[in-house]
Amino acid sequence: MSRANEYHPSMLRGLWALTVRELKKWLKEPIILMMAVLQPVIWMGFFGKAMNLNEMFSANSLTNIKIPDAVPIPGNYVIPPVNGVVYVSGAWISQMLQQMFSDIGTSVMQNTFGVADYFSYMAVGMISMIVMFTTMFSGMSIVWDRRLGFLDKVLSTPVSRAAIILSKMLNAALRAMFQATIILALAVLLGLKVSATFTPLNLLGIYAAVFLLSMGLSALFLALALRSTRQETQMAIVNLINMPLMFASNTFFPIKMMPEWIQAIANVNPVSYLTDALRQLTVFSLDISALITDFIYLGVFAAVLSIIGVVLSWRYLTK
């Protein structure tokens, strides 16, 4: 009789059970999953396509420049001078200018964004965006569990406290990985150009990078939500964090063009490292040392925040 109660709830068993619960929830409502992808897709489709920077820097931008039919050039600029004056065809100069500008444009795009078209640049950034939005919901869901009483019930069982928070993190990561796949597929359909160094194996790298940032960020949002009972507060906090996190990163624009104070933020912002890793693996020609740096940063970020999250959950899940 007394032996019957001596179960040894293992951390992994509890973690798995709680994760499966969350997965079952979203598999039963796939619509919600699709809705979450909608926002980055809208950004990608409208902003990414409308903000046509490479077109801006193309020869077409010069079509309205007025160049006279014939341009007189003072003789001392031409050697040798003929009757003091030479005539050059205006059409030719126009053509030359257009050609030069187009070359300059391509080079500006390549030097600024690392790719020839802005769409390919920002579409990859949208994967970072979905990671941010998905992880912020993990904080929300623990508040919801608390309000429904589910959290208290789980806390009254001998399941490991760490399993409670890790299951939420794992769920966010799996969700983000799934959504990243959809976004990437849509981006390719909309005209994303992968670089020559891309191989299908890179996909594994993409998943790994998305997984690491998701674990880190969701640990952060969960830690902030551990004792919260109001979703409104949580929502406000999340918005306060997410917008700067997104704009002070290379999600939309390269860091090197930003004012120094934003650069300072962007350079420690883990989102920048995820976005860079993703671009290295897709649209950039792969710079292996940059990729390694990205992964080290993401790995450390994920490890440190997961540990903080778990430690805080031991202390603060129980009021």
Binding site: N5, E6, Y7, R21, K24, K25, K28, E29, L148, G149, F150, D152, K153, S156, T157, P158
Partner: peptide, 17 residues
């Protein structure tokens, strides 16, 4: 926690399961 059972005031069962 191992030896107690709890029936909370709220309905805590997951509605989606």
């Amino acid at each position: 926690r191992k030896v107690i059972g709890v029936v909370p005031q709220e309905y805590t069962a997951d509605e989606d399961l």
